[in-house]
Amino acid sequence: MNRLEGLEETTTLNNGVNMPRLGLGVWKTDNTSAKESVKDAIVKGYHLIDTAKQYGNETGVGEGIKEGLAATGQNRNDLFITTKLFNGDQGYESTLNALEGTLKRLDLTYIDLYLMHWPVDGKYIDTWKAMEKLYRQGKVRAIGISNFDNERLQDLLDHTDIVPAVNQMEFNPINQEKDILEFNNHAGIQMEAWSPLGGGEALSNPQIKTIADKYKKSVAQVILRFDWQKGVITIPKSSHEERIIQNSDIFDFKLSDDDMKAIEAIDKEKRSLWYPDFTWHTTGEMQDTVDKWDDSPANYKD
């Protein structure tokens, strides 16, 4: 399989929607860089783009989508756009209202996958019920969650009607979330990886470097191939055209069972962010804010 064929590969979500298995993420990217990287990614064959209101770059992503489609002659339905409900917008009525601002910033009429960014304690059940309504209204093609541990996910399943299509988690060789991956697979929920490369600790791991040398690939390419073979959707971030191409050049080799096991053994269950670090559900302890950039339009007050 070549690079472009791999980028066409999809998985079928539990509601029948087909989602690309490899895409572009834009966390910690300003609007100007997001516009350029999204356009470059579309031109280079990507179909899945992942953003969030909290990232402060939905406007730039929307502009990149428009320019990428114009450059390639594709249509909106050739792309799969994911964004996420802002923590500060959680709650039933505020969730229903928040989508309109996101659609305006992205300059889109619908979202392919709408994720609850974090399970805000005391709100995530009502929030999900509102997302179910948005789904039934056809404003989003699929709904999912992000950063849900098994306890909160089971609570969600016990009190709502629609099983999430996706759970987007931190997933990489250093943090493989084996229990959550197993739970998701059992429940028919597709795991998607944020931070799929695992940062410096994974990228400098000598065992992965030895495996990369064996296949004549970069460490990043081996990690993304590992994620792929684990059945996890990946959205590596890059603002460089060359790296965008390299990150999708993972379809002309396959890791052996032994090499997969070697990478699995690297797991340290080491999360970079998790519940003890997030106190946004406790009023006053952490301000819930949208990332602001020097090039941010003043349109984040819905």
Rank of each mutant, 00 (worst) to 15 (best):
G6Y: 03
E9R: 10
E9L: 11
T10F: 08
N18I: 04
D30S: 07
E36L: 03
D40E: 10
D50I: 06
K53S: 11
Y55G: 14
G64V: 13
F80R: 03
N87F: 02
N87C: 12
G88V: 13
Q90F: 05
Q90Y: 04
E93P: 03
L96V: 11
E100Q: 10
L103W: 03
K104E: 06
D107P: 00
L115P: 00
G122R: 13
K123T: 08
I125A: 06
T127Y: 01
W128P: 04
E132Q: 07
Q137V: 15
N150L: 14
L156N: 05
T160G: 15
D161E: 15
M169I: 11
S195H: 08
L197G: 02
L197W: 02
G198Y: 00
S204L: 09
I208V: 10
K214Y: 01
Y215Q: 04
A220C: 10
G231R: 02
G231A: 12
T234W: 00
I235S: 01
S239K: 03
I245W: 02
S248Y: 01
S248N: 05
M260H: 09
I263H: 05
R271P: 05
W274D: 14
H281V: 13
T283K: 14
D288T: 15
K292C: 08
A298E: 11
K301I: 08
